[in-house]
Design a protein around this nucleic acid. Structure first.
Lengths: 254, 254
DNA sequence: CGGTAACTTGACATCTCTCAACAGTAGTGG
DNA sequence: CCACTACTGTTGAGAGATGTCAAGTTACCG
């Protein structure tokens, strides 16, 4: 993650603009009208620091956000502190749907890096559904896609060995992030600690470390200077048999 | 599950009707117009046998269904046969969204009991989004709610012990199913084998059996004659700290 | 230069898995 | 009516993967 201004500023100008995601070719475009409509719903940006909580774990009916910049994750914790990361959030992801719908057992959201989110008005969902069926469709697409990520994670945690799980996670993150950072040379930014990997895969920190080192010694990947590089994608794919690449660019609300 | 006619019949009359879910008070009602609109999209029912596959694992762009009757589950498998059940499907659940949206890595769907589903026309999603924002909203609600089930399952598999996971699963199923079977006396129908529990929680069959027996000996629950009864809900809740009950009745597309 | 967070590594404990055998039940066909 | 098969459930014994504890090391930051 490039360093980003992280002062806690909430822009709320007369015409609140959210500076768009850089690599917009990575996403399906909106129509003129959709863009205009979304502009009218924006409350402006909010900047967050690394480690900051965007949504507390048991909140209800909060705001809706699109992640413009930076990484985060969704999580749940048990009363004794055990934590499970549900999935990682990358630029373009839509945040807060479950809370908005007052679904019980909603998760928390925390940032991994300094980040900017675009805030949407409280009744945006209703407005989008009434007036912009195309955008509403995007929202379901995003929800269904996020669920598919959790599905994949559940498959890992439930049925893959530690090494397979970790390899699958690295590959999945690489695939999701790579299109966003095409212009930055090899690999992707990797602001995730071993503790995060542990919490995402239901492993202990120690075992995660040992397995990660083993994969690195075997030449599968390299993590250095906060970047992840996949060195032997073919071998990793053989090891983990992940599903094939996405055929179409992801949708978005921004 | 009561025995159900399970001949492979596809009704496709001039005015295809789907016999509604019995206990409709368990769901949020539709408006007159919404009901009329849904009627126009229905292709009729399809009856399935226990064990039958409704959606094969790597299919794309299939039909959409609402489960009227009977239970099923979503699943993924690895190439060597290891299987993970993602969540269980109960009457009222909406099926096939990920496939419809051509999201890679979609799951399969299989029935646990004889079941009836209501089939919807191929372009129903678009029609609903264009014309019935309220129903479109229901679809996102259903998608977000299903994701919250997977979230909870991931928390179990990742961070709970075998006993905690199993107890949490039993409670969650009980809570979901109980409103549907209020008129049947105690407990809920329980068409789930120990192998299914294993595959849902990432456990071995043997360990599942031993843990289940232990919980039963401890007086937490009872499974007999294909029904599940929770005997000591308070104790189980203490053991697993699941989230509080849903505040509102679930939505539906039917 | 001290202090904190992240990362490493070894030794040992334990939960869960695998293997193996058997019991109960339902369906099937002779 | 009885074998026969298939599926589900049950239990014990030993093996293996992963967790826990403990002790550093490295990197970063004020």
């Amino acid at each position: 993650m490039a360093a980003e201004s992280s002062s806690e500023i909430i822009l709320n100008q007369s015409s609140p603009r959210c500076h768009p995601i850089r690599e917009s070719t990575a996403f399906l475009p909106h129509s003129e009208e959709e863009t205009r409509f979304l502009n009218s719903l924006r409350l402006g940006e909010r900047a967050l620091e690394a480690g900051e909580t965007l949504i507390p774990e048991h909140s209800r009916g909060g705001e809706l956000y699109t992640l413009l910049n930076g990484w985060g994750f969704r999580f749940k914790t048990l009363s004794d502190g055990r934590r499970q990361i549900l999935n990682f959030l990358l630029p373009g992801d839509f945040i807060g749907l479950q809370q908005k719908m007052d679904i019980a057992a909603a998760h928390g959201v925390e940032m991994l890096t300094p980040a900017r989110v675009c805030r949407y008005a409280r009744d945006s969902l209703g407005a989008i559904f009434k007036n912009q069926p195309g955008l509403a469709y995007n929202i379901v697409w995003l929800a269904a896609h996020e669920e598919s990520l959790v599905d994949e994670s559940l498959l890992s945690v439930g049925r893959r060995s530690a090494a397979e799980s970790i390899a699958a996670l690295l590959i999945t993150l690489y695939r999701r992030a790579r299109p966003l950072y095409k212009n930055e040379g090899d690999g992707i930014p990797f602001p995730i600690t071993q503790q995060h990997i542990s919490d995402a895969l239901g492993l202990s920190l120690v075992h995660t470390n040992k397995t990660l080192r083993r994969l690195e010694r075997l030449g599968f990947h390299k993590i250095e200077n906060g970047r992840l590089i996949i060195l032997n994608a073919q071998a990793v794919k053989t090891l983990v048999d992940v599903s094939p690449d996405l055929p179409t660019p992801p949708r978005r609300i921004i």
